[in-house]
């Protein structure tokens, strides 16, 4: 079980800001594939992964990273602070 959070246009396309996901995914990529296979709104949000960033437990990470022990996965577009 992992908490998945979404920001900006990913949140809008998926339709929820956060959700608990029952998953056995080994890596972030596996989780993305699992979600994308679930419903078209996920497939649409994750269609272009070059435009998606990921954080694991609030630390920037990447799609190859393992999910073992991770409590919170966040997906969002490239950041635009400042």
């Amino acid at each position: 079980m992992v908490e998945v959070v979404y920001f900006a246009w990913l949140r809008e396309r998926i339709g929820v800001p956060r959700e608990r996901v029952e998953t056995g995914a080994a890596t972030v990529s596996d989780l993305v594939a699992e979600l994308s296979a679930r419903e078209p709104r996920y497939a649409a949000a994750f269609a272009d992964l070059a435009a998606v960033r990921v954080a694991l437990d609030q630390e920037l990470s990447d799609f190859d990273a393992p999910l073992a022990g991770v409590r919170e996965v966040a997906f969002f577009p490239p950041m635009t602070g400042g």
Binding site: F7, A8, A55, L60, A74, F76, P77, P78, M79, T80, G81, G82
Partner: peptide, 14 residues
């Protein structure tokens, strides 16, 4: 600080 917080701080503008 400016360079880093522009692309490494999790803010999104609309």
């Amino acid at each position: 600080l400016m360079d880093y917080l522009k692309s490494r701080a999790p803010f999104w503008k609309r």
